[in-house]
């Protein structure tokens, strides 16, 4: 049963798609290397850790993935800056009261209480929840992860208890994030429908109609996919922003590398201890 080729509507620019790939990669690696550490006594975890080359290697992989996640986060901040400063775009991801109504309407529709699917904007409530959950989660994970990575630096300023508290939060947040992705994200983009707009950048008409009816109407009415202010100074701003970004990017990268490497938390190899074990008591000669 081949469907007629549908009209595709632009949904994500390259920047967002790169961000998604960075997030996808780092998140997956972090989850695979992190959860077995959280549930280290489970035999399945131990098999996974062994498979990945042992706990020491798993921790190294986890930290590289964390670095990638932080880089991705910085990149995301830069893209936000670009859209706000250069393009003059409105942040359509911000939650609104209408999202709450959409949730209720969606529930009523699912239960058959109303006959029409709520019409939703460019980012529907589900996507907004996911986005802000990622923002919140990444912030928590980066902060607590940094604490766990550099406990000596942290406890120079904060009480010691903060470290195990960070560990608890890191584990709890990880579990929340992974289960949310599995239940919510995977259902919405892989099971309910196959939505690959994060890779292709486009979404076909019927999915647009179901999930982003308002956006579809706006695009059909000739609206721009990514409406901005079209500032006259856009080119200048673009140039300025490029240099600022490159400069700040290099600086931030250097600072990040330093942040990730400055602390020698513990000695890496045990000091060799030698002692004479054969020290016999004096015994009488016959």
């Amino acid at each position: 049963m081949s469907k007629p080729k549908q009209k595709m509507y632009p949904r994500f620019r390259v920047m967002a798609r790169i961000e998604h790939i960075i997030l996808l990669t780092s998140f997956t690696v972090l989850a695979i290397t992190g959860l077995p550490q959280k549930y280290a006594t489970a035999s399945f975890s131990q098999s996974m850790i062994s498979f990945m080359g042992g706990i020491s290697q798993v921790r190294v992989i986890h930290r590289y993935a964390a670095f990638l996640l932080v880089l991705g986060s910085v990149y995301h901040l830069f893209t936000i800056g670009f859209r706000w400063y250069v393009k003059g775009e409105r942040m359509r991801i911000l939650p609104e009261l209408q999202d709450g109504r959409d949730i209720i309407d969606m529930l009523r529709y699912n239960l058959g209480l109303i006959q029409h699917h709520p019409k939703m904007p460019k980012f529907n409530f589900g996507e907004k929840i996911e986005y802000w959950a990622v923002i919140w989660g990444t912030a928590i994970m980066v902060i607590t992860g940094f604490m766990l990575w550099n406990p000596i630096a942290i406890t120079s300023y904060l009480p010691g208890q903060i470290i195990p508290a960070a560990k608890t939060a890191h584990g709890g947040e990880a579990l929340l994030a992974v289960l949310s992705i599995v239940i919510w994200h995977f259902y919405n983009v892989l099971i309910k429908t196959r939505n690959f707009s994060m890779f292709t950048g486009n979404l076909p008409h019927d999915q647009m109609e179901e999930e982003h009816a308002l956006e579809l109407e706006r695009l059909e009415a000739g609206g721009e996919p990514f409406p901005g202010l079209h500032l006259r100074a856009e080119k200048t701003r673009k140039r300025i922003y490029f240099f600022v970004t490159v400069g700040a990017g290099i600086l931030i990268f250097v600072v990040l590398v330093w942040l990730f490497t400055f602390e020698e938390t513990a000695i890496t190899t045990l000091p060799a201890v030698t002692r004479e074990v054969f020290v016999p008591l004096a015994t009488a000669v016959p």
């Binding site: 709890g172 579990l175 929340l176 239940i183 919510w184």
Partner: peptide, 20 residues
Amino acid sequence: VDLFYKIVIPLTLGFFSLMV
């Protein structure tokens, strides 16, 4: 902190499960 996640995780997942 532990208590927080013991409450937040089931609530969040409960909401997602309800919607799904």
